[in-house]
Design a protein around this nucleic acid. Sequence first.
DNA 1: TAGAGACATCTGAGTACACG
DNA 2: CGTGTACTCAGATGTCTCTA
Length: 216
Amino acid sequence: MPMLTHSGLWYALDEIARRNDLTPSGLARLAGLDSTALNKSKRVTSEGRLRWPSTESVAKILQVTGTSLEMFSALAADHSPRPNPSIVTAAPFITQVFLQEQARQGGPKDIQEMDQWDHIAFPVPHGQFVYILEVSGNTLEPYYSDGDLLAIAPEAPLRRGDRVLFASQDGRIGARKLVRKTLESYEFRGLMPGDNPLIMAEQELLWVHRIVWVSQ
DNA sequence: TAGAGACATCTGAGTACACG
DNA sequence: CGTGTACTCAGATGTCTCTA
Protein backbone atom coordinates (compact mmCIF):
# COMPACT_ATOMS: atom_id res chain seq x y z
CA MET A 1 0.00 0.00 0.00
CA PRO A 2 1.68 3.24 -1.11
CA MET A 3 2.09 5.92 1.52
CA LEU A 4 1.01 9.49 0.98
CA THR A 5 4.22 11.43 1.43
CA HIS A 6 4.87 15.16 1.68
CA SER A 7 6.89 15.18 -1.52
CA GLY A 8 4.36 12.98 -3.27
CA LEU A 9 1.46 15.19 -2.32
CA TRP A 10 3.14 18.39 -3.50
CA TYR A 11 4.36 16.63 -6.61
CA ALA A 12 0.79 15.60 -7.40
CA LEU A 13 -0.43 19.19 -7.01
CA ASP A 14 2.36 20.47 -9.28
CA GLU A 15 1.50 17.78 -11.81
CA ILE A 16 -2.20 18.72 -11.75
CA ALA A 17 -1.20 22.32 -12.43
CA ARG A 18 1.08 21.28 -15.27
CA ARG A 19 -1.56 19.05 -16.85
CA ASN A 20 -4.00 21.96 -16.79
CA ASP A 21 -1.50 24.38 -18.32
CA LEU A 22 -1.34 26.34 -15.07
CA THR A 23 1.38 27.55 -12.77
CA PRO A 24 1.04 26.69 -9.07
CA SER A 25 -0.11 30.28 -8.48
CA GLY A 26 -2.67 30.01 -11.25
CA LEU A 27 -3.98 26.74 -9.92
CA ALA A 28 -4.31 28.22 -6.43
CA ARG A 29 -6.29 31.18 -7.76
CA LEU A 30 -8.49 28.92 -9.87
CA ALA A 31 -9.30 26.92 -6.74
CA GLY A 32 -10.20 30.07 -4.85
CA LEU A 33 -7.09 29.95 -2.70
CA ASP A 34 -4.54 32.65 -2.13
CA SER A 35 -2.17 32.80 -5.10
CA THR A 36 0.76 32.02 -2.84
CA ALA A 37 -0.90 29.01 -1.22
CA LEU A 38 1.08 26.60 -3.39
CA ASN A 39 4.36 28.52 -3.33
CA LYS A 40 7.47 26.45 -2.82
CA SER A 41 8.14 28.61 0.23
CA LYS A 42 4.89 27.43 1.84
CA ARG A 43 5.89 23.76 1.67
CA VAL A 44 8.66 23.83 4.26
CA THR A 45 9.03 26.27 7.15
CA SER A 46 12.20 28.24 7.76
CA GLU A 47 12.93 25.73 10.54
CA GLY A 48 12.72 22.91 8.07
CA ARG A 49 9.35 21.57 9.23
CA LEU A 50 7.22 20.16 6.44
CA ARG A 51 3.99 22.04 5.71
CA TRP A 52 0.99 20.25 4.27
CA PRO A 53 -2.00 21.73 2.45
CA SER A 54 -5.30 21.23 4.21
CA THR A 55 -7.72 18.59 2.96
CA GLU A 56 -10.09 21.45 2.12
CA SER A 57 -7.50 23.07 -0.15
CA VAL A 58 -6.74 19.77 -1.85
CA ALA A 59 -10.46 19.12 -2.32
CA LYS A 60 -10.95 22.51 -3.97
CA ILE A 61 -8.06 21.90 -6.35
CA LEU A 62 -9.36 18.47 -7.31
CA GLN A 63 -12.84 19.90 -7.84
CA VAL A 64 -11.89 22.83 -10.08
CA THR A 65 -9.57 20.70 -12.19
CA GLY A 66 -11.94 17.76 -12.39
CA THR A 67 -9.26 15.52 -10.96
CA SER A 68 -10.47 12.36 -9.28
CA LEU A 69 -9.20 11.33 -5.88
CA GLU A 70 -7.96 8.12 -7.50
CA MET A 71 -5.90 10.07 -10.03
CA PHE A 72 -4.53 12.31 -7.30
CA SER A 73 -3.56 9.28 -5.24
CA ALA A 74 -1.89 7.66 -8.23
CA LEU A 75 0.12 10.80 -8.97
CA ALA A 76 1.19 11.11 -5.35
CA ALA A 77 2.04 7.41 -5.12
CA ASP A 78 4.12 7.58 -8.28
CA HIS A 79 6.39 10.02 -6.49
CA SER A 80 6.66 8.05 -3.25
CA PRO A 81 10.20 7.06 -2.46
CA ARG A 82 11.31 3.52 -3.20
CA PRO A 83 13.20 1.66 -0.44
CA ASN A 84 16.99 1.80 -0.45
CA PRO A 85 17.46 3.82 -3.61
CA SER A 86 20.89 4.34 -5.05
CA ILE A 87 21.98 6.54 -7.88
CA VAL A 88 22.59 4.79 -11.16
CA THR A 89 24.62 7.02 -13.42
CA ALA A 90 23.65 5.51 -16.72
CA ALA A 91 20.86 3.54 -18.33
CA PRO A 92 19.70 2.96 -21.88
CA PHE A 93 17.24 5.66 -22.83
CA ILE A 94 14.63 4.68 -25.39
CA THR A 95 11.35 6.08 -26.64
CA GLN A 96 7.94 4.46 -26.52
CA VAL A 97 7.73 4.73 -30.32
CA PHE A 98 10.91 2.70 -30.63
CA LEU A 99 9.72 0.14 -28.07
CA GLN A 100 6.41 -0.27 -29.91
CA GLU A 101 8.20 -0.72 -33.21
CA GLN A 102 10.42 -3.38 -31.67
CA ALA A 103 7.37 -5.12 -30.19
CA ARG A 104 5.68 -5.23 -33.60
CA GLN A 105 8.78 -6.95 -34.90
CA GLY A 106 8.61 -9.50 -32.10
CA GLY A 107 11.27 -8.03 -29.85
CA PRO A 108 13.35 -6.92 -28.17
CA LYS A 109 13.65 -9.84 -25.82
CA ASP A 110 16.87 -8.66 -24.25
CA ILE A 111 16.93 -4.90 -23.84
CA GLN A 112 20.11 -5.12 -21.77
CA GLU A 113 22.07 -5.82 -24.94
CA MET A 114 21.03 -2.46 -26.37
CA ASP A 115 23.59 0.23 -25.71
CA GLN A 116 23.25 2.78 -28.48
CA TRP A 117 20.95 5.23 -26.66
CA ASP A 118 21.39 8.28 -24.49
CA HIS A 119 22.08 7.94 -20.79
CA ILE A 120 20.64 9.81 -17.82
CA ALA A 121 21.00 9.68 -14.03
CA PHE A 122 18.17 8.59 -11.77
CA PRO A 123 17.55 6.62 -8.54
CA VAL A 124 16.75 2.89 -8.65
CA PRO A 125 17.03 -0.04 -6.25
CA HIS A 126 20.65 -1.05 -5.89
CA GLY A 127 22.25 -3.39 -8.37
CA GLN A 128 19.44 -3.77 -10.88
CA PHE A 129 19.77 -3.30 -14.59
CA VAL A 130 17.23 -0.76 -15.79
CA TYR A 131 16.33 1.10 -18.92
CA ILE A 132 14.53 4.42 -19.24
CA LEU A 133 11.38 4.66 -21.32
CA GLU A 134 10.19 8.07 -22.47
CA VAL A 135 6.42 7.94 -22.86
CA SER A 136 5.17 9.37 -26.13
CA GLY A 137 1.58 9.94 -27.18
CA ASN A 138 -1.43 9.06 -25.07
CA THR A 139 -1.52 5.27 -25.21
CA LEU A 140 -0.52 4.93 -21.55
CA GLU A 141 -2.96 7.56 -20.26
CA PRO A 142 -4.44 8.18 -17.79
CA TYR A 143 -1.57 6.59 -15.88
CA TYR A 144 1.34 8.12 -17.74
CA SER A 145 1.43 11.07 -20.12
CA ASP A 146 3.51 12.23 -23.02
CA GLY A 147 7.04 13.04 -21.84
CA ASP A 148 6.91 11.00 -18.62
CA LEU A 149 10.00 8.92 -17.91
CA LEU A 150 9.67 5.38 -16.57
CA ALA A 151 12.59 3.39 -15.19
CA ILE A 152 12.05 -0.25 -16.11
CA ALA A 153 13.86 -3.18 -14.48
CA PRO A 154 13.41 -6.06 -16.94
CA GLU A 155 15.22 -8.58 -14.75
CA ALA A 156 13.52 -7.67 -11.49
CA PRO A 157 11.34 -10.49 -10.12
CA LEU A 158 7.65 -9.74 -10.49
CA ARG A 159 5.59 -9.58 -7.35
CA ARG A 160 1.93 -9.16 -6.70
CA GLY A 161 1.08 -5.46 -6.70
CA ASP A 162 4.02 -4.39 -8.86
CA ARG A 163 3.46 -1.75 -11.51
CA VAL A 164 4.52 -3.30 -14.75
CA LEU A 165 5.04 -2.44 -18.40
CA PHE A 166 4.21 -5.14 -20.91
CA ALA A 167 4.41 -5.67 -24.64
CA SER A 168 1.91 -7.91 -26.41
CA GLN A 169 2.62 -10.05 -29.45
CA ASP A 170 0.56 -7.64 -31.56
CA GLY A 171 2.88 -4.76 -30.74
CA ARG A 172 0.93 -2.99 -28.02
CA ILE A 173 2.66 -1.48 -24.99
CA GLY A 174 0.63 -1.28 -21.79
CA ALA A 175 1.06 -0.28 -18.15
CA ARG A 176 -0.85 -2.01 -15.37
CA LYS A 177 -0.58 -3.35 -11.83
CA LEU A 178 0.15 -7.07 -11.59
CA VAL A 179 -2.54 -8.91 -9.63
CA ARG A 180 -1.33 -12.48 -10.11
CA LYS A 181 0.65 -14.68 -12.44
CA THR A 182 -0.11 -18.30 -13.16
CA LEU A 183 1.69 -20.76 -15.41
CA GLU A 184 -0.57 -19.81 -18.30
CA SER A 185 -1.57 -16.19 -17.80
CA TYR A 186 -1.08 -12.81 -16.21
CA GLU A 187 -3.88 -10.93 -14.46
CA PHE A 188 -3.51 -7.15 -14.43
CA ARG A 189 -5.50 -4.28 -13.05
CA GLY A 190 -5.38 -0.61 -13.96
CA LEU A 191 -3.45 1.73 -11.69
CA MET A 192 -6.68 3.38 -10.55
CA PRO A 193 -9.15 1.78 -8.14
CA GLY A 194 -12.12 0.45 -10.04
CA ASP A 195 -10.29 -0.13 -13.28
CA ASN A 196 -11.33 -3.31 -15.03
CA PRO A 197 -9.09 -6.37 -14.75
CA LEU A 198 -7.11 -7.51 -17.77
CA ILE A 199 -6.17 -11.17 -18.18
CA MET A 200 -3.63 -12.03 -20.84
CA ALA A 201 -2.32 -15.46 -21.77
CA GLU A 202 1.41 -16.05 -21.46
CA GLN A 203 1.68 -16.58 -25.22
CA GLU A 204 0.00 -13.22 -25.90
CA LEU A 205 2.85 -11.38 -24.22
CA LEU A 206 6.33 -10.64 -25.44
CA TRP A 207 7.55 -9.52 -22.08
CA VAL A 208 6.41 -8.06 -18.73
CA HIS A 209 8.85 -5.71 -17.00
CA ARG A 210 8.65 -4.11 -13.60
CA ILE A 211 8.37 -0.29 -13.34
CA VAL A 212 10.73 0.78 -10.55
CA TRP A 213 10.67 4.55 -10.82
CA VAL A 214 8.68 7.33 -12.46
CA SER A 215 9.72 10.89 -13.17
CA GLN A 216 7.10 13.19 -14.66
C1' DT B 1 4.84 35.09 -10.75
C1' DA B 2 7.42 33.51 -6.80
C1' DG B 3 9.56 34.07 -2.25
C1' DA B 4 9.37 35.54 2.40
C1' DG B 5 7.77 37.52 6.84
C1' DA B 6 4.03 38.79 9.82
C1' DC B 7 -0.24 37.97 11.36
C1' DA B 8 -5.07 35.97 11.48
C1' DT B 9 -7.61 32.05 11.85
C1' DC B 10 -8.44 27.37 12.52
C1' DT B 11 -7.66 22.69 14.32
C1' DG B 12 -7.15 19.22 17.45
C1' DA B 13 -5.08 17.35 21.66
C1' DG B 14 -5.54 17.56 26.43
C1' DT B 15 -8.23 18.33 30.43
C1' DA B 16 -12.11 18.86 33.49
C1' DC B 17 -16.63 17.97 34.55
C1' DA B 18 -21.46 16.27 34.27
C1' DC B 19 -24.42 12.52 33.54
C1' DG B 20 -26.31 7.83 33.08
C1' DC C 1 -16.71 3.34 34.61
C1' DG C 2 -17.80 4.92 30.09
C1' DT C 3 -19.43 8.59 27.28
C1' DG C 4 -20.45 13.21 25.87
C1' DT C 5 -19.66 18.17 26.19
C1' DA C 6 -17.22 22.42 27.00
C1' DC C 7 -13.10 24.83 27.41
C1' DT C 8 -8.15 26.10 26.78
C1' DC C 9 -4.18 26.71 24.18
C1' DA C 10 -0.18 25.40 21.36
C1' DG C 11 0.77 24.58 16.89
C1' DA C 12 -0.40 24.47 11.99
C1' DT C 13 -2.26 26.50 7.78
C1' DG C 14 -4.03 30.39 5.11
C1' DT C 15 -3.93 35.25 3.93
C1' DC C 16 -1.98 39.75 3.43
C1' DT C 17 1.66 42.55 2.10
C1' DC C 18 5.94 43.68 0.28
C1' DT C 19 9.91 42.73 -2.62
C1' DA C 20 12.37 40.98 -6.54
